[in-house]
Design a binder for these strands. Structure first.
Length: 561
RNA sequence: GCGGAAUUAGCUCAGCUGGAUAGAGCGUCGGUCUACGAAACCGAAGGUCGCAGGUUCGACUCCUGCAUUCCGCGCCA
């Protein structure tokens, strides 16, 4: 609807250009807003104020000229000039309700567009190292990353979901040593417990399984424990498989599916790391100093240069990081979006600097990043800091066990990633209007219930029949609901463009409120037949949009609760 | 000290990339079930948008300082 109006206004501007009132029309399409105040119409435009100076006319005079130049159309009922020069448009009521037809016809596809045109985007998220169960921070990353992926798919992108992990570094070594110590019957309280060892009780389970010779099947590997507690390599392989399986289970419980698990070790095996170093050297961005090899990242906006190869010989972690992202580029992803915790903020400059240093024609702002802030968990009015199994942090599994997958996903994705999140367990558990996820799901179930009732009634009331009587829809609550339904495609497009899934959550809250208001104000099935069928069509359309929206968040849309 | 994020109603948060009288939910107060789902609805009260400048027709939004909170700042990952 916005686009239609923008086109009309552009046409009017073109006419004013030929009349010599304006020099040239602006490059960008006119900005169309939805005013908060209903008396300002359905849509408004600020173009007269924007162009007033260039036209050499007072904004209100220019506004008059624009309105007069507007071509004949069926979209706009009336238009007014208001305030300093706003154009306010009242849209024909029929246009608002026609969206019901479009929704029922398009179904699950309503809200989607082809902005991405099948281009490929990779979304990397979670990327937890296999040293323990996923914690709530990973959960936030999982919820945001998956929802982002769904939004991109809905807007025409081909999405590749990827999970990257370090399967060979010092942290993994600590993991192996911890398991070995547990296998030898030691506890974290013993004096010879490994330094920086992992203390959670899950380590004990791994040790027991290894000793018992169990076979572990994870999403990307299968390993059998040898039981030889002196063989650190065997323990390492087994422990990694165990923790990967643990995380697989967490992700499955959270309804997240990845297309690919990418191993850091593969970058060494394939020679990608060595090739990256060689390329950076060849491009002349490196130098030797104090027996180490440095990358001149300050050439690319970093505040100091970074070591690539340490004095003792190994590479620092950011070298494989650069190799990994070069690999992503070579795989042909036009866009790459990395969803990470904000504590990894400093890697952005380094990775981008490394990629620029390769002189491979990679754009400066590539890859894109979405960073989320910390999550704290509140229960019974106090912060929860410990988990039974993991010890030092609250796990994603804890949250899912406490409040369920739907509420966990909704709460973790409903806030802007940039703001710190307090997860209120008691609120997420509440089965009342305190709880937004149930509020939205209830709206969906309510629609489904009305539809069931209609289908079971002898009168033959169907949403399809209602499509011929949409003109019966007229009351304020009814129109408000129809208008909200019409916003959905804009919400999806904006949320995808800004990489902000929480827009969808907010929209659904508002849509559910509109549905409930409508429902309480007007009888549906007991109205006169034509009105009843039209309202039933509106309800069916609402159910569809709520289902589509919840789908973008990875939250279920129950038929009954 | 440097970099990033945040600061909006008692609480938790939105605010459509600069628009009109700053919005929700919870909580508080007051109403609505012989009713298609009351897990709902309707109404009321509640604000110096952290502070101070600047940019312009117009600032919660952009710029510059300052304050406070969180996160980074390793030849760890």
């Amino acid at each position: 609807m916005k686009a239609e109006l923008a086109a009309l206004i552009t046409e009017a501007l073109e006419k004013l250009v030929t009349e010599g009132v304006l020099g040239a029309i602006p490059d960008a399409p006119p900005q169309i807003d939805r005013p908060k105040d209903a008396s300002h119409g359905d849509l408004s435009c600020n173009i007269a104020m924007v162009l007033a100076k260039r036209a050499g006319l007072p904004p209100r005079d220019l506004a008059t000229r624009i309105i007069d130049a507007l071509p004949d159309n069926t979209l706009v009922d009336t238009s007014h000039i208001a305030g300093p020069g706003f154009l306010n448009f009242f849209i024909n009521a029929g246009h608002h309700t026609q969206v019901v037809k479009a929704i029922l016809k398009t179904g699950v596809g309503f809200g989607c567009c082809d902005e991405g045109a099948g281009r490929r985007v990779q979304v990397e998220f979670v990327s937890a190292n296999p040293t323990g169960p996923l914690h709530v921070g990973h959960g936030r990353g999982a919820a945001i990353g998956d929802s982002l992926s769904r939004l991109l798919e809905a807007t025409g992108w081909r999405v590749h979901r990827e999970f990257y992990y370090n399967d060979a570094g010092q942290q993994i070594n600590n993991l192996a040593l911890s398991v070995q110590a547990r296998a030898r019957g030691k506890t974290p309280y013993d004096p010879d417990w490994p330094k920086d060892g992992y203390q959670g009780s899950y380590i004990e389970e791994v040790a027991r399984a290894f000793a018992a010779g169990e076979t572990v099947e994870a999403a990307d590997r299968v390993i059998t424990g040898t039981g030889d507690i002196k063989d650190l390599d065997a323990i390492r392989d087994f422990a990694v498989a165990c923790l990967r399986r643990e995380q697989d289970q967490d992700l499955r419980a959270f309804q997240i599916v990845f297309d690919e698990y990418f191993l850091e070790s593969s970058l060494y095996d394939s020679g990608a790391v060595e090739n990256t170093v060689a390329a950076l050297r060849a491009a002349g961005h490196t130098y030797d100093e104090e027996e180490a090899l440095w990358l001149r990242t300050t050439d690319f906006g970093d505040d100091k240069d970074r070591v690539m190869r340490k004095r003792e010989g190994g590479y620092t972690y950011f070298v494989p990081d650069v190799a990994y992202h070069h690999n992503k580029w070579e795989r042909g992803f036009e866009r790459v979006i990395n969803e990470q915790g904000a504590d990894h903020h400093s890697t952005i400059t380094r990775v981008r600097a490394g990629l620029q240093g390769l002189d491979a024609g990679i754009p400066e702002g590539w890859p894109e990043y979405v960073l989320h802030q910390m999550v704290t968990v509140m229960r019974d009015g106090a912060e929860v800091k410990l988990s039974k199994r993991a010890g030092s942090y609250v796990t994603l599994r804890d949250l899912i066990d406490w409040v369920g997958c739907d509420a966990t996903r909704y709460f973790l994705v409903a806030r802007a990633p940039t703001s710190q999140l307090t997860f209120d367990v008691d609120l997420a558990l509440a089965r009342s209007n305190e709880n937004p996820v149930y509020y939205i799901q209830y709206a969906h179930a309510r629609c489904a219930s009305v539809m069931r009732k209609a289908a079971a009634t002898a009168g033959g009331l169907t949403p399809e029949a209602g499509l011929n009587h949409l003109s019966m829809l007229s009351e304020p609550e009814t129109m408000a609901l129809a208008i909200s339904l019409g916003r959905f495609p804009e919400v999806v497009a904006t949320a995808a463009a800004r990489l902000e899934p929480h827009d969808v959550a907010n929209y659904l809250r508002e849509l559910a409120a509109d549905l409930h208001s409508f429902y309480n104000a007007h009888k549906i099935l007991e109205a006169a037949p034509e009105t009843a069928s039209a309202r039933l069509a509106l309800v069916a359309a609402t159910r569809q949009v709520i289902a589509n929206g919840l789908g973008l968040l990875g939250v279920a849309a129950p038929e009954s609760m």
